[in-house]
Every structure is written in structure tokens, then in C-alpha cells.
């Protein structure tokens, strides 16, 4: 008959000498296995013993089991700790080695900038409106107060297909279409889209470009509201320290009309090389919607008024990302597009 205490001692000794998980697992099976484990075997003849001895042996066997289990757990913890302790040496890698290429493509920088502009204006309640790129003379010019022979037509030299069909020179036709569709103000819309003018390609302008125009028609809007909207937009896109100024200008579809400038981000308006010592960067045009243009959109100028503005998405992207040549946006050189 084997003494439970001796058995325990033997097990503890074996556990203390074990150096791997596998050895411990073998010891566990050897002593604690349900079928042929040595502790179980202790109890194999227990049925023949008198009840008093049976109780003593049962208790001793349980104690042995607990002691062995505790020793196993302890030794396991020691082995784990030891293994984790030298991870720094055994599994060290060169963390300066670069990761593999992600293999992702890019979204075009103009899409990104357009979306940023849309987000800012959507936060003010403006909604995106779209319209056709091939327009009629009426929507592109006449509805905007630019009748045939008007001297301002020079500024919008356009590509024609027939005497009445042309590529839109601005997204303003979408404003007319939106007014006609919505009919009753309030109208707060933005009109992103491609436009075309018959200017030969150069570093600062292209015969094709993209605009975002905005239009607000409501009751009692003011030049101050227009300035505030532009300032909110510019500060949201370029930072709170930017300022906006409006300068009188002329467009047939607004009265009064303005150009709007943004303070130079480098010199903050003092004048530097990047703003050609002007302190300001020209961004776009704006103004209070001409009463005749409201009428052409089916809106009664006695009851409502409005303001509108427009600028090139490329221009905004150039200012934001220091792009010096507008042609890069449409050349589709991946070395450029992958920078954004």
C-alpha cells in the first residue's frame, strides 16, 4: 500500500524538476489522471476497507490531489514567467524595418476638397444641387442678365455646339434651375460641378475647371450675411485666423457685386512673396442676387432677396495644398495624385 504522503513528496519533486509544459502535463496525467493516475489508484481498493479507514484514506488522497494541483499551478506560473521574462531577447525584431505597401488607391484631391467645402456649407443648412454641363444660351447667359452682345460676355468665352447649346461657363445655370424647381424660398443651395471657358491651358487656368457656387434666397438677407457666410466657410476650411474681404466688382447677375479675397496664410495680410506682396489672395466672386435674375428664376424680388458666390475648387485646393500648377489636377500623374 502506498503512502499518500510519500506519493505527494514524489510528485512535488518531479514537478520541481520539470522544465516544460509538456513535462508538467505528463506528470499531471501520471498522478491525477482519472483512469490510471497514481492518486486515483490509491483509492482503487478503498471499497474493501472498514469505514473509518476509508474516511482517513479518502481525506489523505484528496489532500495529496490538492497539493499536487497547487504545485503544478505554481510550477506552470514559474515556467510562464521565465519564458515571458526573456521575450525581449528571444523574440526581438527590427522595428525600423518598413511595413509592406498598403495597396490602397487615393481619392482625387479635388473630390476631397469639394467634399470638405460641401460639409462646411451643409453644416449651415445648404443642400447640394446639380445640373447639366451642356446648357442652353438662356440658362447660361440670358437668365443671368447677360443678353447677347453684352460686353461682360467676354469674361465667359464659351465652347458652342450649336448657336443655342454650349458648355456651361459657370454653375450659375443650376441656381436658375433650382429656383424654378423649388419655387418658394427659403433656398439655401450649393452647386458644385465642372465648367468650361475658352481659355488656352496655362499654369493658372484651364479651359475646364470646377466650381462651387452658393445661393441663398430668403427674407431680408444682407451683404453682412454674405460676408459672414464666406468668413465662416473660409475659417472652417483654412483656420480661425483667416480673414475675408470683399471688393466691389461687376457681374451682371449680382448687384452689388464683389470679388472676395482671403488673407494670406503665410504673412497674415502683411504682404509676402507668396501673395505677391498684396497680403490677400483672390478666391472668387459674390454679390446680392440681381432682382432680374430672381425674376428669371420665378422668385418675386419684392418679397425675397438673396446672395450668391462662386469660386474654383482648384483654386481652393491650390491654396490649401500649395499646388502651383492647375494642370496637375487633370493630368492624372499618379505621382501627384498619390500625395493627397
Amino acid at each position: 500500500m502506498i503512502n499518500p504522503q510519500e506519493l505527494t513528496q514524489a510528485a512535488l519533486a518531479a514537478i520541481a524538476q520539470a522544465h516544460t509544459e509538456d513535462e508538467l502535463a505528463a506528470i499531471e496525467v501520471d498522478y491525477l489522471g482519472r483512469k490510471n493516475g497514481r492518486v486515483s489508484n490509491l483509492l482503487s481498493g478503498i471499497g474493501k476497507l472498514p469505514s473509518a479507514e476509508r474516511a482517513v484514506l479518502g481525506q489523505a488522497a484528496n489532500e495529496a490531489k490538492r497539493a499536487i494541483e497547487a504545485a503544478l499551478a505554481g510550477r506552470r506560473r514559474e515556467l510562464t514567467d521565465a519564458r515571458l521574462a526573456d521575450l525581449a531577447e528571444t523574440e526581438a525584431i527590427d522595428i525600423t524595418f518598413p511595413g509592406p505597401a498598403l495597396g490602397r488607391g487615393r481619392i482625387h484631391v479635388l473630390t476631397q476638397v469639394q467634399r470638405q467645402i460641401e460639409s462646411v456649407l451643409e453644416s449651415l443648412g445648404y443642400k447640394v444641387e446639380l445640373g447639366p454641363e451642356v446648357e442652353t444660351e438662356w440658362y447660361n447667359f440670358e437668365a443671368l442678365n447677360i443678353p447677347p452682345g453684352h460686353p461682360a460676355r467676354e469674361s465667359w468665352d464659351s465652347f458652342y455646339f450649336t448657336p443655342d447649346l454650349l458648355l456651361r461657363a459657370h454653375t450659375s445655370p443650376v441656381q436658375i434651375r433650382a429656383m424654378q424647381r423649388i419655387k418658394e424660398p427659403p433656398i439655401y443651395i450649393i452647386t458644385p460641378g465642372r465648367c468650361y471657358r475658352r481659355d488656352p491651358p496655362e499654369a493658372t487656368r484651364l479651359p475646364y475647371f470646377s466650381q462651387v457656387e452658393g445661393l441663398a434666397v430668403d427674407k431680408a438677407l444682407t451683404v453682412g450675411d454674405m460676408k459672414g457666410t464666406l468668413l465662416y466657410m473660409i475659417q472652417s476650411l483654412y483656420g480661425e485666423d483667416r480673414r475675408v474681404r470683399v471688393r466691389p466688382s461687376y457681374f451682371p447677375f449680382t448687384e452689388p457685386s464683389f470679388e472676395f479675397d482671403v488673407s494670406c496664410g503665410i504673412c497674415a495680410g502683411a504682404g509676402c512673396k507668396s501673395c505677391r506682396y498684396k497680403g490677400w489672395l483672390e478666391v472668387g466672386g459674390c454679390g446680392m442676387v440681381h432682382p432680374q435674375v430672381l425674376r428669371n428664376g420665378g422668385i418675386d424680388p419684392e418679397k425675397w432677396n438673396g446672395y450668391a458666390w462662386g469660386f474654383g475648387i482648384e483654386r481652393m485646393a491650390m491654396l490649401k495644398h500649395d499646388v502651383e500648377d492647375i494642370r496637375l489636377f487633370y493630368e492624372s500623374d499618379l505621382r501627384f495624385l498619390e500625395q493627397f
Binding site: 490602397r104 482625387h108 479635388l110 473630390t111 454641363e133 465642372r194 470646377s210 495624385l337
Partner: peptide, 11 residues
């Protein structure tokens, strides 16, 4: 999927 967006002239 690794595709890069381009904006190409319509003309």
C-alpha cells in the same frame, strides 16, 4: 482595391 481616382478633361 487599390484604384486611384482621376479627373480627366471632358473635351
Amino acid at each position: 482595391a487599390g484604384f486611384t481616382e482621376t479627373w480627366n478633361p471632358a473635351l
